[in-house]
Amino acid sequence: MATLPKALLWQRTDTTGTDLALFDDRRGLIARGVATAIDPIPYLCRYELVTDETWATAHLDVTVEGAGWLRSLRLERAAGRWRATTAEQGDLDRVLISEGHAPAGLPGTDEPDRLHDAIDIDLAGAPLPNTLPIRRLGLLDAPPGTTHALTMAWVLVPSLEVLPSAQTYRVVDESTIRFDLEGFGADLAVDKEGYVLTYPGLAERQA
């Protein structure tokens, strides 16, 4: 496994947790990350995200585990089509119900054609994937007001259920991108390379 030359660390602000991403962005993105959180139950999330040179997602591998359970997902995009491969050990639903939460959806998707319009992924709780459309669409150099309506392959955590998600990215200024998702909105503060510094209500970058 090759080493990766860059690292970013975020502190979650919506719950107790962190997200550390190691990455290489010289030709698209290759990233490996480890995230922790305690909501809705304590879990550890490991992910690998790879794009092509245009920053379009090629594949995402995610493993989420907690006490007595583990789920994994491989989400691949090729020739405009998505494929999801999943595995599960233990019983996440039993743990959620025992803690007073609703059961999780099944990992992956039974209807990959619903993701047909998606080029980017969005991994719940992780700030790094927000950089994908910012870089792919050249939003760092776009004039204020530039807006793109997108469909994302949204991966829920800890269930690893994959859903199509309608999202909008709008340039506010050279360091701020407005992000809107189904009634939720946030002004993302980004650095000169398009990586999130502050995601209001979700995370703050520490390094």
Rank of each mutant, 00 (worst) to 15 (best):
Y199S: 13
A84H: 08
T13P: 15
D14T: 07
V172Q: 07
D122Q: 03
I119T: 14
Q167T: 14
A21M: 13
Y43N: 06
R46F: 08
T36A: 08
R94C: 02
G125H: 06
D91Y: 07
Y47S: 04
Q206P: 00
A79M: 06
D39C: 00
T16E: 14
G183F: 09
R26M: 03
A37G: 14
A166L: 14
T131N: 00
E53R: 15
D24V: 09
Y169P: 11
L202P: 10
W69Q: 07
P143E: 13
A87W: 04
Y199G: 08
R74S: 15
L202M: 15
T18W: 11
D117W: 02
L96F: 01
G80Y: 14
Y195A: 06
S165C: 10
E204K: 05
R83G: 02
E174R: 05
Y195H: 08
T198Q: 11
T131M: 08
E48W: 08
D120R: 00
L20E: 07
G17E: 06
D19C: 12
M1V: 06
A31S: 13
Y43R: 11
V162W: 04
A124N: 09
P127V: 01
R94G: 06
E53N: 11
A31H: 04
T57D: 08
D180G: 00
A67C: 08
Q11Y: 04
L150C: 12
G66T: 07
L160C: 10
A189P: 00
E174A: 15
E182N: 13
A166G: 01
R12Y: 09
W154Q: 02
G17L: 05
L156T: 05
D141E: 11
D61Q: 13
R136V: 01
H148C: 10
L20T: 06
E76D: 13
A126Q: 03
E65G: 10
T13V: 14
T146H: 14
V172E: 14
G100T: 05
C45F: 01
E88H: 06
G138P: 10
L160E: 04
G80S: 04
G68T: 10
R46N: 05
E53Q: 06
G201C: 10
L29H: 01
R178Y: 13
L128M: 02
G80V: 05
L92P: 03
D117C: 04
E48T: 10
D24M: 04
H101V: 00
L4V: 10
E88P: 06
R135M: 05
P144W: 05
R74T: 15
Q11T: 15
A78H: 09
L20F: 12
L156F: 02
R71C: 11
A186P: 00
T147F: 11
L139N: 09
D173V: 06
P143W: 11
L115R: 02
H148S: 13
L128N: 02
D110E: 14
L8M: 15
G80D: 05
L73Y: 09
